[in-house]
Each structure stands twice: as structure tokens, then as C-alpha cells.
């Protein structure tokens, strides 16, 4: 019973963290049509920032600042945004595919830095002493309290995203996404709007990374693999329905349930297959993405025009 409870808490927390990431990607892709293929990079900046600010002093990496975890969150967001800003300035004038290439490049370089600068974050070993808020409450209350924090953040982000979608800002963003020239012709500052979406979205991705580092109490090269960050988040948004905040959250829910549900199944496989089960899952997710794109490209909850607010 206790095990089941803990499993449920883990499941929900993970869905919540991925929900943060999909909402962020929806802001960039669903709202503004910006093809960010470098989620892993901003995720890493947020995660490592949190780890370095909060982890206890160690000879293996930069640290010992002793910040309270919750105070590290805004800094994580700020730093992700600071990195996103120059990249956005340079790349947002480019069409979709080029931004994808540039963003995947920057993500790989950010990951390289954390992997190779051992003084900074202990290289490939990573930092495994990241404190998690509410830990002192013990199990399961500490876990439940952390879940509550994630849910709270998610609700705030969702409400903000919904407001933004219906606001003149969101409308301008969609106009730019759908017809850049026409939007520019009616006097919208295309570059500024795009930059705002890119930077804000990347900040939220940093927040997602920070929450993840806290939850796992660990950040290292394996935790910023593009598969688990960039591509899984893309799959979630496309399956859920890009351009729809609820779709984004639903995508995180559905895909994570499939991802961890298959784990239950693959655990029953013969021993020599268990080690390979995560590849089977990745294969499945890849096939799912292709099938969804071919059959219903708009996702489970397609984009819809915003309700009028009077």
C-alpha cells in the first residue's frame, strides 16, 4: 500500500514537471511558432544552477552557497533567460529549421560545458547532493508536499498561459506565427514578440530543470540527455495538441503514463531484456510520434480560438 502511494506520488510529480516543460514549449512553438530543439540546454542551466546554489559544500564541484531551495528557483529561471536572450537575438530572424539547428547546437554546447568542466559540476558524475524542499517531513509527507509545490507552480503557469493566450499579446503572437509579413505590416514588432516568447519559454524550461534536479536530488549528464528532455517534451506537446495549454498538459500526462506504464510491463521481461527495456520504450514513443503526426497532426486537444473575455 505504501509502495503504491509512493509510486503514485512519483508518477504525479514527474507528470507535473513535464507539464511545466510542455507549457513552456507550447509558449514557444504553439504560441509563437518558434522551433526550439534545445530544451535540454535550458533545462540543464536551470538544473545545474539550482544544484550549485543549494548543494552542500564539496571538493568535487562549485558550491557551498547554502541557498534555500525555493530561493534558487528564480535564479535558475533568470540564468536560463539570460542564456536564451542572446541566442534569440541571433537566431529568431531565421526560419524554423535553422532555429532548430542553432538551438540544438547551443543545447549540446551547454551540456558539453557541464560535462567537461569538472570544477563546476563534477563532470559526468554530476551533483548528487541536491536538497529537496520539505524533505524533513519524511516519507510520504515530504514527497506529497513537494508534489503540492509542483502542482502549485503548474497551476500558476497554466493560468498565466491561458490568460496570455486570450490576451492581445497572445493574439499578436499567433498573428506573427501564422503570417509574419501581415503582422509586421500592421505594426507588430515581430522580433520583440518572438524574443519575449523565446526568453520566457526558456526561463520556464529552466524552472522545469530546477524542479527536476530537486526531485531527483541529482543532476548529471545522464539527466540532461536530449531524449528525456528535448524529444520527450516535443512528443508530449505534439500528441497533446500544440497551441492548446490543456493539450500540452494532457500530452505530458498521457505520454508519461505510457512511458512509465511500459516500465511495469518490461519489468516482467526476461532478465537479459530488462536492461534494454528503456530502448524499447524509446522505440515505442518514436513510433507513436510518427503515427500521431500522420493520422491526427493536431493532437488530442487541437488548438482552438480563445474564449472572449468581456
Amino acid at each position: 500500500m505504501f509502495g503504491l502511494l509512493m509510486y503514485g506520488l512519483t508518477l504525479l510529480t514527474m507528470i507535473g514537471i513535464y507539464g511545466v516543460l510542455t507549457l513552456a514549449l507550447n509558449l514557444q512553438w504553439g504560441f509563437a511558432g518558434l522551433f526550439n530543439a534545445g530544451i535540454a540546454g535550458f533545462f540543464a542551466v536551470g538544473a545545474y544552477t539550482t544544484a550549485i546554489l543549494t548543494a552542500p559544500e564539496s571538493a568535487n564541484h562549485l558550491g557551498g552557497f547554502g541557498w534555500p531551495p525555493l530561493a534558487a528557483l528564480p535564479v535558475a529561471m533568470l540564468l536560463s533567460g539570460l542564456i536564451a536572450w542572446p541566442i534569440g537575438r541571433i537566431c529568431l530572424g531565421l526560419k524554423g529549421d535553422y532555429l532548430a539547428m542553432a538551438s540544438i547546437g547551443i543545447a549540446e554546447i551547454i551540456r558539453l560545458v557541464f560535462k567537461n568542466e569538472t570544477w563546476l559540476a563534477n563532470g559526468t558524475m554530476g551533483i548528487s547532493t541536491v536538497p529537496r524542499p520539505f524533505e524533513s517531513l519524511g516519507q510520504p509527507w515530504g514527497n506529497a508536499a513537494f508534489l503540492l509545490l509542483v502542482v502549485l507552480i503548474l497551476v500558476v503557469l497554466y493560468l498565466a498561459a491561458e490568460r496570455a493566450w486570450a490576451s492581445p499579446w497572445g493574439r499578436a503572437m499567433r498573428a506573427i506565427r501564422d503570417n509574419e509579413l501581415a503582422a509586421a505590416a500592421i505594426g507588430k514588432d515581430v522580433v520583440r514578440f518572438r524574443l519575449e516568447a523565446f526568453v520566457i519559454g526558456s526561463m520556464v524550461m529552466g524552472l522545469g530543470g530546477a524542479l527536476s534536479a530537486m526531485y531527483f536530488k541529482f543532476i548529471g549528464a545522464s539527466a540532461t540527455e536530449p531524449l528525456l528532455t528535448t524529444f520527450l517534451v516535443w512528443v508530449m506537446l505534439i500528441i497533446g495538441g500544440s497551441g492548446n495549454n490543456r493539450g500540452a498538459l494532457l500530452g505530458a500526462l498521457v505520454v508519461w503514463l505510457i512511458w512509465s506504464g511500459t516500465e511495469l510491463f518490461t519489468n516482467r521481461l526476461p532478465a537479459e531484456w530488462i536492461t534494454r527495456s528503456s530502448y524499447l520504450r524509446a522505440l515505442l514513443i518514436g513510433v507513436l510520434l510518427i503515427v500521431v503526426l500522420q493520422r491526427f497532426a493536431r493532437g488530442i486537444l487541437p488548438e482552438r480560438p480563445p474564449r472572449r473575455i468581456d
Partner: peptide, 18 residues
């Protein structure tokens, strides 16, 4: 084209995990 790029993410996952 951008939809096909996302599809190529899927191909990437499938080929690599295979």
C-alpha cells in the same frame, strides 16, 4: 517542412533505439 522535422525526431528515436 517543420512538421516533417518533428517526424524526423520520431525516426531518430526509432532508429537509435532499434
Amino acid at each position: 517542412g517543420i512538421i516533417v522535422v518533428i517526424a524526423s525526431f520520431g525516426v531518430m528515436l526509432v532508429v537509435r533505439s532499434a
